[in-house]
Simulated assay, not measured.
Amino acid sequence: SREFRDKQASFFDLADNGEKVIIKRGKKQAYTLVPIENEDFFLSPEAEERIKRSREQYRNGEFKTYKTADEAIKFLESL
């Protein structure tokens, strides 16, 4: 078990240094180690892209505003 722990630690060191680490489990299952900068909060690449697009739309004035929550709810229900 000590040998396994030592080898496991080296996988984490590789991931910390930016290397892509894939761990295979059986024939059909594989996992990728990805270091997370802030353990409290993680966004997928897709979510980051959507946020980036939304910010661009905001900068370009491509958004709607409503004076009351009822107006916003009415708009959402019309979709």
Score class of each variant (00 low, 15 high):
Ser44Val: 06
Asp16Tyr: 06
Ile23Val: 10
Pro35Ile: 05
Ile22Thr: 07
Ala15Asp: 05
Phe42Cys: 06
Lys28Met: 03
Lys27Val: 07
Asp16Arg: 14
Lys64Gly: 01
Lys20Tyr: 07
Asn38Phe: 04
Ser78Phe: 01
Gln29Val: 11
Ile51Thr: 00
Val21Leu: 04
Phe41Gln: 13
Glu39Thr: 10
Gly18His: 02
Phe11Tyr: 10
Asp70Lys: 15
Glu37Gln: 12
Gly26Asp: 02
Thr32Lys: 13
Lys67Met: 03
Gln57Phe: 14
Ser44Thr: 14
Asp70Gln: 15
Lys52Asn: 12
Arg59Met: 10
Thr32Leu: 15
Lys28Val: 08
Ile51Asn: 00
Leu43Phe: 14
Gln57Gly: 07
Glu3Ser: 12
Pro35Glu: 02
Glu46Met: 15
Ala47Cys: 06
Ile36Arg: 03
Thr68Leu: 01
Val34His: 07
Asp6Asn: 10
Pro45Trp: 07
Arg59Val: 03
Lys67Leu: 02
Gln8Glu: 14
Ala47Arg: 10
Ile51Gln: 06
Lys24His: 06
Asn38Lys: 09
Glu62Thr: 02
Arg2Thr: 12
Ile36Thr: 11
Gln57Thr: 06
Val34Phe: 06
Gly61Gln: 03
Glu39Val: 10
Pro45Met: 11
Leu33Ser: 03
Val21Ser: 05
Thr65Arg: 02
Lys27Trp: 05
Gln8Trp: 10
Val34Thr: 13
Gln57Tyr: 14
Glu37His: 08
Glu71Gln: 12
Asn60Pro: 04
Glu37Gly: 06
Ile51Val: 10
Leu14Pro: 00
Lys64Phe: 05
Glu77Val: 08
Gln57Leu: 15
Lys7Arg: 12
Tyr31Cys: 02
Ser44Ala: 09
Leu76Trp: 04
Ile36Asn: 08
Gln8Gly: 05
Ile22Val: 10
Glu37Met: 08
Asp16Trp: 04
Gln57Val: 06
Leu14Lys: 15
Lys7Thr: 12
Asn38Leu: 06
Phe12Met: 08
Asn17Thr: 02
Gln29Cys: 04
Glu39Asn: 14
Tyr31Asp: 09
Ile51Asp: 02
Ile73Gln: 10
Ala15Lys: 01
